[in-house]
Write a protein that binds this DNA or RNA. Structure first.
Lengths: 160, 160
DNA sequence: CGCCGCAACCGGCATAATGCCGGATGCATG
DNA sequence: CATGCATCCGGCATTATGCCGGTTGCGGCG
């Protein structure tokens, strides 16, 4: 097999398409910080035309590399209580539950995990009452089989 | 101070402005899931005009309640495995365990929690083998009663 | 009690961004 | 050297945005 070297108009570097190349990473880097930036200015920053940039972004979306765009919600009213909700689902791919979870502003992070658990949900609320309400709402979501709540008493180690 | 009551054209209910009212919460709920939705369609969904909706969103941004917009990236840095180690201790508190955990460079975050669990440990390793070794080392630490490992398959939500 | 200011709302118009094409280019392949 | 393919660009009709003035309901004040 020959070495596939593509010199693109002296601007882009070599790249076999396939997955994410240098340009895609630049796009992801920008969009992960400025999710609402217009395609036109994104294009300008990475040095491609608007239509090409749009096409690349759509491809990243289709491929699932960009799963969506989220507004980054700050504290609604000074949340202090952190907790983990450990969820077991009845059926495991559950888009519905994720959508609902994303709707709670208290939800900070959701991870799909292997093992008996299915989701680790990190939440931040302003009061124990709010936590209880959230807990009840999450527990009664369709497809949620089991829910364990663990309130963070102390943050012992936090890096990076 | 008097109660500021705003009756909005028979559509919205009462609400004191000040912070976030019912409508703002609707906006946040939608934007937290669809960060790139056009203002026009956002407006349509919450039942206000485009300009009013835009003004509300800008206010949320100015107030810092919306911190920004992020593209939700799937796998960004490949090769890194994230996992939660859910620890139950024989006796709590246990300074010894925390010291030992801090000694592992793979340990990213440790939270003391209430409930049946005692510690939620977030780790980041380069391979499944590394995770297994780490798991074994942690499990055999003095004072560790039980250890559940949950590998993060996918990061579904991550804010801030 | 009428007037003013304010906050929240709406609609409209010029400008900017988007969606959707067709067409060019470079490269591997038969 | 013709064909297919991936990538890129530009242009035009459509849509969204930024910015403005105008309306409405209500508390404050003379």
């Amino acid at each position: 097999m020959f070495i596939i070297t593509v010199i693109l108009s002296a601007a882009a570097m070599s790249g076999n398409m396939q997955d994410t190349d240098e340009i895609d990473r630049a796009i992801l880097s920008i969009l992960s910080r400025e999710g609402r930036v217009p395609m036109k200015s994104l294009a300008g920053r990475i040095g491609l035309s608007r239509s090409t940039t749009t096409e690349r972004v759509s491809r990243l979306e289709r491929k699932g590399i960009i799963r969506g765009y989220r507004a980054d919600i700050g504290q609604l009213d000074e949340g202090q209580i952190h907790a983990f909700l450990l969820l077991t689902l009845k059926r495991t791919p559950s888009i519905g539950v994720l959508d609902r979870l994303a709707g709670f502003s208290a939800v900070r992070k959701v991870s799909s995990v292997s093992g008996q658990l299915d989701l680790v949900v990190e939440v931040e609320v302003g009061s124990i009452n709010a936590l209880n309400e959230l807990r009840n709402e999450v527990a009664t979501l369709d497809n949620v089989e089991d829910l364990t709540t663990a309130i963070v008493l102390r943050r012992d180690i936090e890096r990076s």
